[in-house]
């Protein structure tokens, strides 16, 4: 999951993003749209961040990588939040329908919340572990961002698939 990264500069902040010319989520979207049936959408994760590193001056510097990875992380985070909101609305509606007919079925919305909370703990602990490969800092910043980007994207894709089920 972690990438080969050189040196740590810590986590990029929003103020860093003004000078990023190479980031465009369309690269990831195009990759997803062009997928064949045998391909996994996972193969498209990181496409925009990589394109950003390649096309931005200093994109392969630690700071450049951090900014590009953070941009794609933010993109997937928005998608995750949107998918989660959609699934939550659907599950709450089902819970209400079940309650209306007097069903004692366990709440889907509660189970969804428990799942998402467990996922957040799992994401943080996994990315902490990934960071530990880099010891006291070298590469740790971009590696952690990369980990967060991949895991967030995977959970977004998982919840988006769930939103399609009904």
């Amino acid at each position: 999951m972690w990438m080969i990264l050189a040196f740590s500069a810590g986590v990029a902040t929003a103020s860093d993003t003004a000078d990023v010319v190479g980031f465009d989520p369309i690269i990831t979207q195009r990759c997803l749209a062009a997928m064949s049936d045998s391909q996994t959408p996972r193969s498209c994760i990181g496409a925009s961040a990589n394109h950003c590193m390649e096309t931005t001056e200093g994109g392969w510097s630690t700071r450049g990588m951090s900014i590009c990875l953070d941009q794609e992380l933010q993109y997937w985070d928005k998608r995750l939040n949107a998918a989660y909101g959609k699934v939550r609305t659907m599950r709450k509606a089902t819970d209400k329908e079940m309650a209306d007919i007097g069903s004692a079925a366990p709440s889907q919305a509660d189970a969804l919340l428990a799942m998402q909370r467990a996922w957040i703990t799992y994401r943080d602990a996994t990315c902490d572990y990934e960071r530990s490969h880099w010891g006291g800092g070298t590469g740790g910043g971009p590696a952690t961002l990369s980990c967060h980007m991949y895991m967030t994207a995977e959970q977004a894709l998982f919840l988006e698939a769930d939103a399609i089920v009904e």
């Binding site: 799942m115 909370r117 467990a118 799992y122």
Partner: peptide
């Protein structure tokens, strides 16, 4: 944390 994530 992965075990809890899988269970939930």
């Amino acid at each position: 944390s992965w075990h809890t994530y899988r269970a939930d």
